[in-house]
Structures are given as C-alpha cells and as structure tokens.
Nucleic acid binder design. Sequence first.
RNA 1: UGGGGCAUGGUGCAACGGCAGCACACCAGCCUUUGGAGCUGUGGAUCUUGGUUCGAGUCCAGGUGCCCCAGCCA
Length: 557
Amino acid sequence: MSPEETSKPTDFLREIVAEDLKSGRFKSVRTRLPPEPNGYLHIGHVKAFMIDYLVAKENNGELILRFDDTNPAKEETEFVEAIEEDARWLGIEWVKVTFASDYFDELYEWAKKLVLAGKAYVDDQTPEEVTANRGTLTEPGKNSPYRDRDMEENMDLLERMKNGEFPAGSRILRAKIDMAHPNINMRDPAMYRIINEPHHRTGDKWKIYPMYDWSHGQNDSMEGITHSLCSLEYENHRPLYEWFLDQLGVFKPRQIEFARLNMTYTMTSKRKLRRLVEDKIVKGWDDPRMPTLRAMRRRGYTAKAITDFIDRVGVAKNYSVSDVALLESCVRNDLNKNSLRRMAVIKPLKVVIDNYPEGQTEEMDAVNNPEDSNAGTRKVPFSKVIYIEQDDFQEVPQPKYYRLFPGNEVRLRYAYFIKCTHVVKDDKGEIIEVHATYDPSTRGGDSPDGRKVKSTIHWVSAEHAKQAEIRMYDRLFTRENPEEGDEGFLACLNPKSLEVLTGYVEPHLDSPEVGSRFQFERLGYFCVDKDSTPYKPVFNLTVNLKDTWAKVEKKGK
RNA sequence: UGGGGCAUGGUGCAACGGCAGCACACCAGCCUUUGGAGCUGUGGAUCUUGGUUCGAGUCCAGGUGCCCCAGCCA
C-alpha cells in the first residue's frame, strides 16, 4: 500500500494504535477476540469483534481468537463451536484459536512469583468477610487478618488449594495491593478461587481457577497482544491490568476501552435472552426475532449488512444506543441491490377477470432485478383467476388510495391493465371475489394509447401458484428500551412479533434453497426457512420495504 | 460524601484553534411498470458559567447531567 492509499484513522481508537506504531511503542499490531464460551453471539458482540478484527487487519497485524474459559461452572464446548461458526460467517479471520485454559500452568507459575515477591497471599476469610472488609465506595476496606502471613505458608497453602485439599469457597489467593485504594478493584483483588467443577478442556486437573483480572492481561502478555480492546466497563480495571504486568515485569500490552453497542428495541443481556428461550416466549436461540447472529442469519440478514451497520455506527467512548432503523436500512440497502424479485401474495384476495378466455395461460416476461441487469428475466404464468393482496383492494377507497377499487383501473405488474367491475360477497357480507375486466392491448403492462394508471400491483395466477407459509416478524418489544421500567422487558412484549400467514408464491419459488433470499415485490425481503418442506416452502420476513402508503394511512387516522 | 469515564440536530458518528459536516430518521417535491429504488430540496445540534485568543465545539477553571465500579462473574 502506498502512503496515498493508506486511509487515515477514523476514530480515537485507531488513532491511538497508529500513534503507538509511529512512536515505536509497538512494532506491529496483534489483537485478540476474547469471547466467553457461555452463550451464543449476538449483535452486541459484533461491534467488538469487528473492531478487534479490523484494527489488526488494517495494520497488517494478526488476530487471535482466545476463548476466555476461566469459569468451568458456566462454559461449554458447544458454545466454542457456535461462536467460531458465527464469527466465520461474519467474515472474521484469525491466525489461531487459543484458550485461557491453555495458559493455566504458566499462569500458576506467575502467581507463585507474586507470592514469592510478597505481592500475593492466601486469604482464609469467608466470602462474607471478604465482602464486609472491602469497605464501600466512600470508606476504605480493612486488611484481612491473613494478609501478613509469611511467604512459606502462602506457598504451601496455594499449592494445597491447587491440589484440592480445601473446599470451594474456603480460601482465595489475593493480590496484595491496598485495601484503602479509592479504586475498589485495587483493594486486594482475588486472583484464584477454588471451584470443584470439571472444566470443558482441562477436565478435573484444576481445583483453582483464575479470575478474569488475573488471567486476561497475563494471557495478553503471553500471546504478545499489543492492543487489548474492550468495553468501557473495564476502564476501572485498567490500573489492575497494568499493576499485574508491572509487578511481573513482562511484556505489557495496551488496553483501550470503547463504548459497547446498544440498539433500540433490542436486549442483549444473556440472562434475559435465556429467559425468553426458557419461558418459550421465543422458539429458541435461533428464533428469527432474537438478536443472536444465528437468529439474524435465519431471518435473512446478510453478514455484509451487519458489518456495514457496525461500520456506520462508529467507535467512540460515548454511551450510545443505535437506532435499529439504521440496521434495517443497511439490510435493505444490500438486499435491494442483490436479491431477486419474485411475486407473492401473502393475504390473498381472488380476482376473476371476466373477459379473459377460460382455460388460457400466458407467459409474462418479468425482470429478476431492476437494480442488476445481469440478473435476467423469467416467465410468469397468467390466467383468468388470480390472487392479489387484500390490502390492494378497497370497496370504498380512502382518500389518496389509488390501488384497486370499483371503477378504478390499475396495472398488474408485467401483465395487463385491469378495471374492477364489481365484488361478490358471502352471507356475512365479506368480499370473497373481486371481478374485473382486462384490456388485451396492454399486455406486458404498457398502454398503446398512453393511458396512465396510478398504481401497479402484484399478483399470482391461482392455477399456477404454490402455497407457502409466510412468517411475518416484527420487533419483539414495544418499547425502545425494553429493560427500562419496573415491570421489565416482559411487560413490553409485542404480541404481534410473529404472524404466520398462508399465501401464494409464483411457480419460480416452488422449492427454493434454504437460506436463499428474495424480494417479494412491494412487500419486503424474505428468506427461505429451514422448516420448509417439498410441499410447502416457508419464508421469513427479513425486513419490509419502506412503505409510504402505510405512513399516509397512519396519518389519516 | 470515593474513584473512573462521557457530554455536538430525534439517533449515531465527524470537525485535531479558522465557514459545525455525514449517515439514519423526519418533512416537501421530482421520477417511477414495486406507494420500492433513485434524484432534489427544507427544517433541526456544540450541557452551563466564566476565562485565554484576532478567532473556541475544540484550550483553561468552576458548575450541571448521565454512565461504570463495593462477584470467590466476564
């Protein structure tokens, strides 16, 4: 890359990295992706992932995927695989996969060094005593009665903790810093605790497990990470991060914090998401309404749209809540350019074209994607009885409504102009059929006499259409911030977050490949669900098209 | 009442002492065989009070507001 082509840093974080390179503090860049394998990746993780990945990539550096598996009670191999799969789907590349548990032996040696140096001690206080003696935000803590025991005893006790001689919770290894420190993280923080649980990688080898603060920075150092990028809540931990590294006198990476991603109408708390799954409010972790990557993928979101969204959100230290409308805009933007157009009717209304010959079928030419001339055309069958959208007909039209109504002429996309003549109702007064006549000279949708119609509507031929299940998704919550308020997120669940419809799709959607995406003209973007069968395809609404009429209608009310 | 951090249109991000700009959203119009897309345009912001300076969103001082921290979670 020539200097002209080198794009300049676009945010504070990239500026810091660039300066570090320029000043020689670091000669190259290596970052790490530190997920805890205790859940599925969600949209909130993507921001951190992309920053770690891109900062390394933009500087010709390396990214290491390191699982933070320091708590055997919560972590599982299943999530390791799921996280790798999701991250790869996003397009993230790493030079190797490591685990915090890979470094348990070496980390233990480093802990002994601190004990030897009088910088760490074994504390026999109960968890309650530790808490009580930590002090408060405004009051200093009290030294543990075990704080000054001699180095030999500490070494002996630590070894025996490791060997499983003591019950869980009975002792911890603590750093010896300052119980009166104004930053509570510096008040002799725990380094190791005793946990009697098998670990997903090390089995029952270990009875003590390192805390995040003791593990993370040391692992960063061991791996030669130059920039350890994390969210704002770790800002208070940076002094401790640096303290450990300074005491050990080892390679010292730089921790930089940035604001995590929050999104309107979306909740990313793992605990609360689990609640949605366990209470069967959604159908699982990949329910298309969930903010998990597997769910978004199933819903039809593209990796490109998601990473574009993250790019547009930017990186800063402000607490922020991004508008889900921006995400939707990104996915529309991608799919508009890249998805094939098809016709589908999701709330069917039968239309009989009285002057069209009985039994006749014509093949109409339809453009596959007006945004992409390479996408070609297809033939769509047309016949006397068709389905149109219920929303595209009003017996008594509202002001500004210019779709089909008695006496009005509209264009059937790629077919003919039709004019509504009358309707047929059942005993209850419900419209069951709309009757119309067509103008044979308008084949293809052009009028030789230059006559204009105000509206073009989509349709499918009743005889040729394929039945399909259409799952119409809407946001899960009715409040911008679902976690706000006394009643919590359960009080603002959107009862209409899923509406299952049976509609008709054109024959070209007979047996579409699972995961393929289409624009159903005038409706939105849809993705073929894995629940599809050869008899009945299932489509998930990814996002609707912008609907100006819906806005007009809403305003009228 | 401790420590750390952050304040720019509705939302998110820029402006690195020199005309406050971009995207999304919003509104109006043009165009349209998708009321989609596209195009054009309008409106709307520097938390506050002082100070430094020819000039402050930016630097300095005070105030205010919001976020994070008292797990043997990460």
